[in-house]
Each structure stands twice: as structure tokens, then as C-alpha cells.
Design a protein around this nucleic acid. Structure first.
Lengths: 105, 105
DNA sequence: CTTATAGTGAAGTAACAGCTTCACTATCAG
DNA sequence: CTGATAGTGAAGCTGTTACTTCACTATAAG
């Protein structure tokens, strides 16, 4: 469970950066390349590369280099982990409300 | 939509910090106070207060001061925004896959 | 072969985020 | 009243992080 926590850690941290979320949003609309991602963001391709490292490490993006072009695509796996965490908190909260209800009766 | 984006921004940023996520997880199990939150985290109550500011600003936590004690509780509203964002990306990705399928036919 | 394109890697900078300390206020208990 | 408890606010320290520059490699095109 310690490793799982670390994964959630990296995931939320990755999406905490607005530039990185912009990249994810772009890629969810379809694959792209490093320089095509950089253009609208107005940052260097080096910076984009660094962001891609982070996104790849937590399962939000998958990349593949063919020739001299690296193609980046969206990866659904990361979102599943996110949804799981949200579900956990929700159900814990429901249980807490139930206990409160029992006490009030 | 600009304002909505800013909200999502603050939300992910808030949950990007492990300490803040620990606070949210704790509160989803039931309400607590500032100093009770600080104890297991081994940080000062001042630090916890600062985290609570962030969490309150993005609708993940609600707090209320009675006498000299501030009681903090979990707020479901924030999670809804999160889920909405995840859903958006998922559906965009589905559509992208559909377009790809059409092309391949 | 020459030149342009796409990306990589290392190193540095500037800003920010998380945390602390300390001095302080407000509330409750004996 | 006295002392302890719970929290607040300002200011400063420190490590992290997002970003840049520059020198470089590898592929593609003329």
C-alpha cells in the first residue's frame, strides 16, 4: 500500500501544475509531438520534455520515438487511480455520516 | 469558463501536496480540530492553518470557529469538480478514438 | 555533402511553497 | 485574577521546481 500511495502522490502532484494539465487536456483530444505541444504553450521544447517525463512516470501519458519525432499520447491508466482515490474519500465520508446518524437516533 | 479553470487549477494544486491530502483523508473519516490535525502530522498548528486556508479556498474543507476551537470538516463540493474534469478528459479521449476508428475504416 | 529539423542532457537561475519561530489575542478552568 | 489552552499573523529560511540557455546528437531533405 506504501507504493500505491506514492503513485497517488506523483499523480496529484503532476496534475497540480497548470502547464502539465494543459498538456494532458491537449493529448486527450488526440496524439501530438513534443514541438507541437510546445508551440501554443510558449515554452521551450526542453521544458515540455521535462513535463512529459513527469506525466509518463505516473501513467498519464505514453510516448514513443520514431525517427527523430517523439509522439505523445494520452494514457487512461492514470485517471483510474485518481478516480479510485476520490471514491475512497467519498465512501469514508458516507460512513462518517452514517455513524453520526446512528448517534443522533 | 476562465473562472472555472482557475478553480480546477487550485483544486489539483491543493491535492498535489501529500500533507494536504493527508488532512483531507483524515477529515473524510470525520471532523477534527486544528491541533488534532497537527499532532499526527508532526508539524506546527501554524502550518496546518496555512494548509486549511488552501483547502478551504478550493471547496475541499469547511471550517467554523466556536469559542477558541476551530472545527474542520470535509466538503464534498470539491470532489465533484475533480470528477467533472476527469470525465471531460475521458470523453474527449473516447471521441478521439472514434475519429481514429472512422479513418481506419 | 550540406543544411534544416526534432529532440536530448547538463547546468544554472529565479520564484515559489512549505515550514518554522516568535509575539500576540481570545477563550476557558481553577 | 492566574495560568493554561487554541489559534492567529507577520516575517524569514530553505528546498524544490519550472524554466532557460547552450552545446550536442540523430534523422530527414535538397
Amino acid at each position: 500500500m506504501g507504493a500505491a500511495l506514492k503513485k497517488t502522490d506523483r499523480l496529484f502532484n503532476a496534475l497540480g501544475d497548470p502547464t502539465r494539465r494543459a498538456i494532458v487536456e491537449k493529448l486527450s483530444r488526440g496524439p501530438s509531438t513534443v514541438s507541437k505541444l510546445a508551440a501554443p504553450l510558449e515554452i521551450t521544447i526542453t521544458a515540455v520534455r521535462q513535463h512529459l517525463d513527469v506525466l509518463e512516470a505516473c501513467g498519464l501519458v505514453r510516448t514513443q520515438k520514431v525517427g527523430r519525432v517523439r509522439t505523445c499520447s494520452f494514457e487512461t491508466k492514470g485517471l483510474a487511480v485518481l478516480e479510485h482515490w476520490i471514491g475512497e474519500q467519498r465512501s469514508m465520508w458516507e460512513q462518517a455520516l452514517d455513524r453520526l446518524g446512528d448517534i443522533l437516533e
